[in-house]
Amino acid sequence: MNPFTKTYTDLDCAIDEVRSLSDDWPPPAQNGTVDDETLHCMCLVLHEWIANLHQHAHFQNNTPRVEIRLTCNAEQVDCSVLDNSNGFDLASYLPTDDEDPEAFPERGMGLRIIEACTDELSYSPTEDGLHRFKFIIPSDHDPWLNTLF
């Protein structure tokens, strides 16, 4: 199945385009493909992540740049987002079990949504000084088992 790879220097444009990926990508099933719900989750995670970079990441004096790579088969969607920000420690921002699950906070739900939707979530520096966000969504992943509350 055709991979998707695209680099953006306009994060607003990146956000707008990833939301249409559930319609535009992947191409019609060849050897089987993931369902619409998985694709909606993928688009939501990418939106939340790039929105997070847009609002909070430090790019020093550089033009923000992200490279999105997606591959898909009948078993799973593999995603990565490479960025040129200073990065941050993802684990320290992920929700903890002792947070009030019924608080319905105005901020901070993006990472909860990302965690609920994905498996094998990571955000780490690369050898060339960039940072890579990676996750997979297996076709049998049930985000409702990981729901937030």
Partner: peptide, 10 residues
């Protein structure tokens, strides 16, 4: 797409 968010966040 909204239903996905509503379900995820309950």
């Amino acid at each position: 797409p909204v239903q996905v968010v509503v379900q995820l966040t309950r």
